[in-house]
Design a protein around this nucleic acid. Sequence first.
DNA 1: TTGTACGCGTTATCAC
DNA 2: GTGATAACGCGTACAA
Lengths: 335, 335
Amino acid sequence: MAATIHDVARLAGVAISTVSKVMSDSPRISALTKNRVREAMQQLNYHPSRHARGLARNCTETLGVLMPLRRNSAFQNPYVFEILCGIERHCASQHYSVMLLDAEALASKPKAVQQLVAERKVDGVILHADLHAPQLIRQFTALALPFVVIGRQPGHHSWVDVDNVHAGEIATAHLLAQGYQHLQFIGNHLHDTISADRLQGFLRALESQHLQPCAPPLYAQAGHYAEGLGLWARLQQLPMRPDAIVVAGNPLAAGVMAAAQADGIRIGYELGIVSFDEYPYAEQTQPPLSVVDIDLFALGEQAAREWFLQWNKPTHCSQSLLLDQRLLVRASSSR
Amino acid sequence: MAATIHDVARLAGVAISTVSKVMSDSPRISALTKNRVREAMQQLNYHPSRHARGLARNCTETLGVLMPLRRNSAFQNPYVFEILCGIERHCASQHYSVMLLDAEALASKPKAVQQLVAERKVDGVILHADLHAPQLIRQFTALALPFVVIGRQPGHHSWVDVDNVHAGEIATAHLLAQGYQHLQFIGNHLHDTISADRLQGFLRALESQHLQPCAPPLYAQAGHYAEGLGLWARLQQLPMRPDAIVVAGNPLAAGVMAAAQADGIRIGYELGIVSFDEYPYAEQTQPPLSVVDIDLFALGEQAAREWFLQWNKPTHCSQSLLLDQRLLVRASSSR
DNA sequence: TTGTACGCGTTATCAC
DNA sequence: GTGATAACGCGTACAA
């Protein structure tokens, strides 16, 4: 079997407590013995048992991530898995492990969360601001389990989110800089908070140039590609036709673009289009779509970073927006 | 803090060893005391500490899953995350947790695998048959860590895989049943084993009807949408033009279809097309694409099931193909 | 500066 | 049937 702390101690000719102190790099151990002990560890390929350590220190060095883990989740919602990758990356840098947890399972059985902390499976969790969130947040708070929410969420707790307002500004400012003048906004659907934020940024960017939107925003029902056709038709009926559009959703933008092209409009000349997110369509449309891209991997890293701040200082609480977004200029908006 | 076995014992008026026996449902404990103890557990909301249990039994009730966790992994490769969901589902049913592990990190640092088992982080792992696999498999075997590979992989160890040969048969048989007669195969690229398997099924299905392929298979370079145009042009130069095509990759199929339509070909009438996987394009093409769909979630579940068989009986070793595939007939192939 | 001894929460092996 | 008690491997006060 694997070597234990006793084996190391014996080989190095010291007591186990000395070995333990070397591991925590205690300043009261001579450099000489430290070296001897470390060499013994190397030789025996020693790694402390996480169970024993967890038992003694009452922590797990494991962070739970609540995810939607239904069938088709990865296809319908690759975003959260991209965030997951970022979380894992940062955790690994802190020698923490990531445990996958099914958000629905946890939310549907009220005792499940209690069990999670009673079994001491994780030191804390990261969750998404979805419909289960409010209930779960209440439970985590009650059980004093440190957590970070991905996505803005009311209440006194840490969250991180993408700054969609800023993204809207970036997109709009770019179109203006390209010389487009009559700008229109299209949202995914009326009650989509992401669309709302992007609209806000759109308006702010226009305002800063003392401009007005071409017409009130239009909205799709669900943000699907196919809806783009109908929206294009509605745009044609406006008193003042836009020469550029900021579309909140990438699939919707592809649809609008296709419909416009079917009418003989040259995208990127008569009509500029900017949308958001590289995925799923941006690079594959004809012409390629300009987008403001969001670094979800970085968002995951930041969520994890935030969690560790809180773990090390339980009173810590921060609510921060990720500003790191890059505009990818492609043919759909470059005259 | 959470209740311990001592608290339960005290409340039930028994010794801790009795409580432990009740947990393992020992037959030599009277039904009466069992009930008393169980009631106490309920009342105190007791759940055994996984660290203490792990220390005593030397197992972790955790399964590691090796994944590609780079930036953009979730977008480029949602398939493995779908499999991950299936793994988690089955593990949860066995009261096991899933730990996420970065395959690259593990493969790039030779000591990382040793550390994994020395720390007793996981009872075993599931990994994908990618380029790191051979090296990792060697290490896991040497360290006697139970593992299951997703994807066929030479050697004496358990793996599960999708039966791509069978999928190719299904696709081809469907086209023949629709009355198409001159069938052509297009692969993603020459050295893609998945394409090779699908081709084998294609040939087998033709053979069983005493038919020949229209021409030798064609191959793309990478399987991208854009390559479809060039392939369509090459098809036009064949001495005998196919009236139906089995395309190994879904994006490629969408490209070929678009190119054919640009030439005025009516898809589903003059030309039948069948491809594989629902994702990313199948339902969104014009017309919708017929595909043989693979249940990756089920594949994940089966991999986990396989792992538990091996965990419970270390000599167990099975190499099995998932047959569970369904043909989704859409307009691209239905006359 | 180093070593001893106990506690962490459980399982398993014995006695009774 | 039930109850002591010794592991399991590590952290840590306290003693030396």
